[in-house]
Nucleic acid binder design. Sequence first.
DNA 1: TCCTTTGTTCAAAAACTGTTGGACAATTGG
DNA 2: CCAATTGTCCAACAGTTTTTGAACAAAGGA
Lengths: 122, 122
Amino acid sequence: MTISHPDTDQIELANVLTALGDETRLAMIGYLALDGGQELACGQFYGLGSKTILSYHLAKLREAGVVQVRPEGTKRMISLRRADLDGKFPGFLDAVLKNAVTLAAEARKNAALEPEEALASD
Amino acid sequence: MTISHPDTDQIELANVLTALGDETRLAMIGYLALDGGQELACGQFYGLGSKTILSYHLAKLREAGVVQVRPEGTKRMISLRRADLDGKFPGFLDAVLKNAVTLAAEARKNAALEPEEALASD
DNA sequence: TCCTTTGTTCAAAAACTGTTGGACAATTGG
DNA sequence: CCAATTGTCCAACAGTTTTTGAACAAAGGA
């Protein structure tokens, strides 16, 4: 395997809770839910910080078993491990996402207003 | 107010998740759910550590808005803020408790086997 | 090949966390 | 009053987390 993920049976609730106990990471999973479960690349988490910081937080989510990361070219396509989480902790992810989605929506709105993060749009 | 608690509208999901992202604190809320929502004193979290450590973790749970603490004599009667949490994060607490309860049950069983924690039973 | 895009890795610094042991405080009972 | 019970507070310690900037690597296009 190119990128290491915990097996489903190695996902522990305390680790998942720790991974999600951070506004940046909560917003990240909100982004992943916003677009209907579509995969996202790191660069699409607008308004959540530098690429270094996103890489760091992405690793935390991946190591806790919250997200799946698939390399595609130079990108990393990220998606929620929804089936695994729903199987182990029924109802948990949906309850958390209700909140996380609003965090992501705010971050996206703010990023649109402050184009410091945005790259050349030409 | 004798003991400080956050208002309901000040309870934030990221803080709740951080508070619960720890095996000791997860087991603590498991204990609170085990006995059908009865209040517990610190001394009744058998097998979870010294009184100092329980006091530390209790403060974390209280400051995050997870538990309510009511002084009674020299004891602190602790209960889940179930209505507040259910109101703000529907389905969340129940999803977490399913797991936390088993942690508490294991801790209680182990504490019964290793009577180092137990005080004089005479 | 050279450059761009996309992200990872590293070292360093600052802040926070969890644990321990001892002292302390408040309440209750003898 | 004196002692026991129940927890809190404090200082110290080791370890972890988060952040920053710079260097690096991998893939793809001109």
